[in-house]
């Protein structure tokens, strides 16, 4: 096992065009997203606008639309799209052998 990556479970638990949450004790809850073609992304589960839970938004292409006020956030960069300005931190993830791995350092950033 590689100490830099945390295994957080099988990728098939993440529905296509869906999201799941990953609380971090003492840190920021993470939202994991899966796009139509199976790519997985991780962002803090907080819209830069009014902290809406991005994990509950609608995923399309590589964007998620926040459920509270329809801000569109890029899953690649965490940046708000269009007219809106703001950015949410992204966390590196990879899928290997059907399991999701998340970068330990970034996932724990800010956690005590």
């Amino acid at each position: 096992m590689d100490a830099n990556w945390l295994d957080i479970g099988p990728v098939d638990q993440l529905p296509a065009l869906g999201a799941r949450t990953l609380p971090v004790q003492g840190g920021q809850e993470i939202a994991l997203f899966r796009t139509a073609n199976g790519k997985v992304f991780a962002l803090h589960n907080k819209c830069p606008h009014k902290q809406g839970p991005l994990s509950q938004g609608i995923v399309h292409d590589t964007t998620v639309t926040c459920p509270l006020h329809n801000w569109r956030i890029s899953l690649l960069t965490g940046e708000a799209q269009g007219e809106d300005k703001g950015c949410v931190p992204t966390i590196p993830v990879k899928v290997d052998g059907g399991r999701i791995f998340i970068a330990r350092a970034e996932a724990l950033a800010g956690a005590r």
Binding site: L6, D7, I8, G9, P10, Q13, L14, P15, R20, T21, L22, P23, V24, Q25, G26, G27, I30, L32, I100, I102, A107, L108, A111, R112
Partner: peptide
């Protein structure tokens, strides 16, 4: 059920994965 459950939980220095 997955809509209502976290995928997993991270506690610093230990990850508890689903399954």
């Amino acid at each position: 059920a997955h809509l209502h459950q976290h995928l997993a939980e991270i506690r610093p220095f230990a990850a508890v994965g689903a399954e």
